[in-house]
């Protein structure tokens, strides 16, 4: 009788051990299966890179402006390359997960841009204007600063950076 009870208790403890082990495995799995969302930081870094590329240490990028102080259109064609940004993916079929743009406004009219630089996948821009808040939408970072050209004229530069990559950052 006593022997039978002892066996039953052993089975019970074994069952508890299994339940607790499964519980711990589940806990670790649920915590670590969620990826870290780094899109906000990533978009901030891209914005910073673009801003530094355009204006650094109080000086406008010499390749961006011509001798007369105007913006060079050819800079736009090689914008990403000139700013050391590479948005290409290894898989050619995979869509580009990034987009960045810089709009230049004169000090007199801050509504109509006079020069525009952009690179990456423009389709992500739709996510920025969306009213609903969802983790599955791309993360947008909009910043602005004033730059001064050698002719002492001021421009407002609005930098927008978007990071898609939802599958890598959201479960």
């Amino acid at each position: 009788m006593k022997n039978k009870k002892g066996k039953l208790l052993s089975v019970y403890w074994f069952a508890i051990l299994v339940i607790v082990s499964v519980g711990i495995v589940l806990m670790v799995n649920t915590f670590y299966s969620n990826p870290y969302d780094v899109r906000e930081i990533e978009s901030e870094i891209i914005s910073g890179k673009v801003a530094d590329c355009v204006y650094y240490g109080g000086k406008v990028n010499s390749e961006l402006v011509n001798i007369n102080g105007g913006f060079r259109e050819d800079f736009q064609d090689k914008f990403l390359e000139k700013c050391s940004l590479n948005f290409e993916t290894e898989d050619e079929l995979e869509k580009v997960a990034y987009y960045t743009e810089a709009e230049f406004f004169t000090e007199d009219d801050e509504t109509k841009s006079v020069f525009f630089l952009s690179g990456g996948n423009k389709n992500w821009k739709v996510d920025c204007g969306a009213d609903l808040k969802s983790e599955n939408l791309a993360k947008c970072n909009e910043k602005e600063f004033y730059l001064r050209t050698s002719a002492d004229s001021i421009y407002l530069v609005k930098v927008l950076s978007i990071v898609g990559k939802t599958s890598e950052n959201v479960k």
Binding site: I19, L26, F31, N34, D37, E40, K171
Partner: peptide, 23 residues
């Protein structure tokens, strides 16, 4: 034991969803 385990599993799941760098 089971209730406490479920509580911790739910807790880790909630904490897992807050894994954000930047906030």
């Amino acid at each position: 034991i089971v209730v406490v385990l479920i509580f911790f599993i739910l807790g880790s799941s909630l904490l897992g969803n807050t894994k954000k760098i930047g906030n």
